[in-house]
Each structure stands twice: as structure tokens, then as C-alpha cells.
Amino acid sequence: MKKYKFYANVIKEEQWLNEQLQAGYKCTNISSWGNYTFEQTNEKYVMRLDYQDYLSTHRFEEYKEIYEEFGWMHVKGSRFGSIHYWQKISDNRDDMFSDRQSKSNYYKRLMNYSLTFAIFFLVISFIIYDGNPLIVKELYLTQGLWEMEGSLFWKAFLFETPFVLLRLIPILILFVSAIQFYMSYMQYKKIKEELSR
């Protein structure tokens, strides 16, 4: 079974993946473009998502070794600062973190990750949108487009619209990553408050 999904929020993505696994599937592959492959199984699987900054080859091996000893299987994740997808057969030890401190560190990592993402796309947006992206007319770069008339205008207008949408992608991603940053910040804050209570 294949499913296409786009998630910018790690917490939501983990929830959705576990809903699929509970229906009697295991995840066999995740592509970078949101293509999830599942396979039917009689075992019960769980999935947990982690984020790690850049890891040296040596530390990446160490990271994977410890998780694998605990029965986790690495579905996806590169050592160059990415989300790591860990799957295992469910038993009563399905959590990735066993104390508050490490759980709070996890949300802190997610927070920094989404912040980097948001800042990156903010910079890209500044570079791409010379004018104000909210003024639709300025997104169309064809010279004299708005002075054209009749079918010539519509042809040129429709021709350029897909490119305008493409140019809007960075600002959409910026928007989504800002939401993710806010959500992981709220989780982090909640856990921190619980810790200091």
C-alpha cells in the first residue's frame, strides 16, 4: 500500500504513521517527497520520530547501534541533520524517552530544527520576492502583461500562472514551518513547566 502525504509537523506525522500501523501495517519505505510505503503484517508495530543535528559517521553508527539494540529499526534518516524514523514491534516499552529531561531535550531539538527551517525560507523569500509577494501583479514578471488586451492577455496570464505558483512555494513552506516551530515551542514550554513544578 502506498500513501502520499505532506507533513510539515513532526508530531502530527508521527500520529498519522501510528494510526496506519495500528490498522495492521508496517512501514517499509519513506521517500523524501512524502511517499509512504506500507506492508500488511500480523505483528503490531509502532513508529517514533526523532531529530538529530549533523552526526559524524562515527556518532551516527553509535546512535543507530544503541537504538537497534533496543529493537528499533531505522526506516529513514540521514546523518546530515534530519528526522529519523524508528519502527519496532510493539511491546510494553514503546517510548523513546524514559525521563522528562530527555523528552524536553527532544522538543528543544524539534524547535531548533523548525526554527532553522523557517529562517532559511524567510531568507529565500526575501531573495525571491523583490517586490511585495502579497501584491499579485508584481508576481507576474512578463513585461507589459497588464497592458495586454483580450485573448493575448489571457494566454500570457494563464501561461505564467504556474510559474507564479512555483514562486509562491517558499512562502508557503515558510508559513508551515513557522506553525511547526510554534507547536514544538508550545510542547517544549509545557514540559518545562511540568519539570519546574
Binding site: 539494540e69 528499533w72 523513546m96
Partner: peptide, 10 residues
């Protein structure tokens, strides 16, 4: 748990 142990070792 695995993540906690990895973090601690690190």
C-alpha cells in the same frame, strides 16, 4: 529507553 540512553551516553 533508547533515546534517553543515547542522549545520556552522548
Amino acid at each position: 529507553a533508547a533515546g534517553t540512553l543515547y542522549g545520556a551516553i552522548d
